[in-house]
Design a protein around this nucleic acid. Sequence first.
DNA 1: CCCTTAATGACACCGAGTGTCAAATTTGCA
DNA 2: TGCAAATTTGACACTCGGTGTCATTAAGGG
Lengths: 220, 220
Amino acid sequence: MRETTPVPIRERTRRLAQTELTSVAQDLFVAQGYDGTTVDQIAAAAGMSKRTFFRYFPSKDDLVIGKYDLFADRMAGALDDRPADEPVWMSLRRVFDITLDYVQDDQQRARNDAMDEIVRSSPQLHARYLEKMQRVQELLIGRVAARLTNGGPTPSDPRPAAIVGAAFACMHAARQAWFASDRSEAFGSYLDDAMGIFDIDPASPSTIRSATSTSSDPSR
Amino acid sequence: MRETTPVPIRERTRRLAQTELTSVAQDLFVAQGYDGTTVDQIAAAAGMSKRTFFRYFPSKDDLVIGKYDLFADRMAGALDDRPADEPVWMSLRRVFDITLDYVQDDQQRARNDAMDEIVRSSPQLHARYLEKMQRVQELLIGRVAARLTNGGPTPSDPRPAAIVGAAFACMHAARQAWFASDRSEAFGSYLDDAMGIFDIDPASPSTIRSATSTSSDPSR
DNA sequence: CCCTTAATGACACCGAGTGTCAAATTTGCA
DNA sequence: TGCAAATTTGACACTCGGTGTCATTAAGGG
């Protein structure tokens, strides 16, 4: 079928170096903290110079949060795989399923949790994590918008972004709650609970309303 | 009543210097961009040294996004002012009203919009903005949780965070849509539209469910 | 007017990134 | 295998954000 390697050898060695750096860096982070670890240390531990490190990662942050880019593509693909006539809210719930079986073996899971802990520990990293998630949402918003208005595009419609944002808020809330729990219950249950609050299909394509209603506050 | 000045003179001159710095910096930002403006330039333009700048602001970022801390207190206070028996979703909608009359005179509004544009232009700033918003939400989540479970506290309940997060997602979506529009319609209309998607009261205290339901995907 | 206290500036320093360029390495090709 | 081109790497210097230190200066209070 393919005579040339689908992933050229350049790229493969490159990724190898990246995973090596990530692994080495992670050990240093858990030992000294994120801010307490310099790029020089990481590079030296991986047997390269600081300058070379920045040829593999655009920044120290990206070593940690770069993986979320793959995550974005995964979710977008998962949404595309959902049947077009499925209610959007349900589709999003199903898309979040890929966050469940994202980790299979315990070895990988432990490393993943360690990285998440690092992200949570540094405000700097957490901020960039939120921004990455925002970008993920933007990918999905376009698709949701296409579903809702399967015809003439309705510009400046807040509903797609609201729906996707609300879904992510639910996922985030479930995640927080699950982390705070004893983890005896499945994460999916928390997700169902959070998203179930808004369990009616929030916006069926038939009930498109125009932005005309203006509510006033009676108690002011 | 008070013999001593409620805001001591030290603090007043300090704030004066801060607003002066903010004003000067903003001009430089619009002229050269955020990243293209160094702290040295800002400090020099305000007639002080770099070191002194960092005595007024902990970082260059805080000069821009520091104001959102006040915003957080405002919103928390606004939520406290809502009647306790009001549906939570409605209360949140009302809390967002303070974002509407946040800007009164056009002069201030123009400066505000310029700052928002700066925040939007820099990924760095945008990330920190999102993090600030997260902190605002945490303030509100505690209050919402207290409302929902007015009795025994239910730890690791994803619903308060989900509700608040969803409300903010709606506000953010409305904001985006409004900015993308021709601004002929009131921002409040967009907000009503976005939040109206989830117009049933999402979680009345009487319908507290436990995290036991586990949905399965029939189409898999 | 003096004395205490706070604000400031100058300086040195650190860490994240970036540009540059020569040396080393790898790859493709004969 | 051998050689030339392309790529990778390391070393160096530099910028910028941010911090610690300390002597100098300004301010406030009696």
